[in-house]
Simulated assay, not measured.
Amino acid sequence: MRNENLKMLIVTALFAAIIGIMAQLTIPLPLVPITGQTLAIGFAATILGKRYGTLSVLVYIMLGIAGLPVFSAMTSGLGIVFGPTGGYIIGFIPAAFIIGWYLERFGFTVTHAIIANIMGTVITLTFGAVWLKFIAELSWTAVLAGGVTPFIIVGIIKAVIAATVGIIVRNRLTSAKLLPVVIA
């Protein structure tokens, strides 16, 4: 049991690093960039489930707050978390939890993973939009135009990729005994 916990903590740290690396894949937009972060969040939660997927996101955020340049465009610090894009970053936490929870509840299948990852996208966009509205003092129209609408189609595409690839990777890691069949 102790070795299993250690193995899962190592995998969790690995996924925190993967999120930080994928955050550097950026397409700049005026208000909020499109990044690989949400794709990596989906991978982590789909592969690791609610507990370790959420923990990997928390580790990622804490690394960024501590000053490691893991947020998009090699940024870090509390200023990013409390800045205009901070709501999206904070939204990663409940998104990962809900993705993992849904999959643990309904099964680790591609169909369920797509549903779960789309739910995660909606959660992230909702947190990000509400935060952006109040921090940047924008109208709801401006928030929807610059902070939500450009990310809907891309978010669905990333959700499908995270779900499909995530389930394949999860199944292979499980069959190789690198992940437990049931992650507690």
Rank of each mutant, 00 (worst) to 15 (best):
G87R: 07
G20Q: 03
V160H: 15
L125F: 05
A45K: 08
I27M: 08
L48T: 14
R51S: 08
G67A: 13
M119G: 01
I18F: 11
G83E: 01
V57S: 13
I65D: 10
G100E: 04
G64P: 09
I156F: 12
R170H: 08
T121W: 07
I157L: 10
R51P: 10
G166I: 09
I34K: 00
V122Q: 02
K133G: 03
L173Y: 07
Y60A: 10
A45S: 15
S76R: 11
I18L: 15
G36F: 02
G107N: 03
V181A: 14
P94I: 03
P33Y: 00
L9T: 06
V154A: 14
T85F: 01
I114A: 10
Y60C: 14
I41K: 03
W131H: 13
V122D: 00
Y52T: 10
G155L: 01
T12K: 10
A17V: 15
V169K: 05
I98C: 05
V122C: 02
L58H: 06
W101S: 06
R51Y: 14
T35I: 11
L39D: 06
T54C: 14
I19Q: 11
G42R: 02
T38F: 13
A145R: 00
F127I: 06
I80R: 12
T126S: 14
I135Q: 01
A96M: 04
I157R: 05
L63G: 09
N117E: 01
P180T: 02
A23P: 07
A45Y: 11
I99T: 05
A159P: 10
G77E: 07
K133N: 14
T46I: 07
I80W: 10
I61N: 06
R105Y: 01
G83D: 06
G64Y: 03
A136Q: 12
I21F: 08
I157N: 04
M8S: 05
G100T: 05
I118F: 13
V110S: 09
R2Y: 04
A129K: 00
A96R: 06
Q37N: 05
T124Y: 06
A184F: 03
A129W: 00
L125N: 01
I99K: 01
I47Y: 10
G107F: 03
V169P: 09
M1F: 08
L68T: 14
L55F: 15
V57N: 05
G87A: 12
I10T: 15
N5F: 11
W101G: 10
F108K: 05
E104S: 02
G86C: 07
R170S: 08
M74T: 15
K7V: 11
I41G: 09
L25P: 07
A116Y: 03
I47A: 14
I93D: 06
E4D: 08
A163R: 11
F43K: 01
P94K: 04
M62R: 08
S76I: 06
L6T: 13
V122F: 07
Y88G: 02
N5D: 12
V182A: 14
L138Y: 00
G91Y: 06
L58G: 13
L14S: 15
T109V: 03
F43R: 01
I65Y: 14
F15I: 02
L63E: 15
A45N: 12
T174H: 08
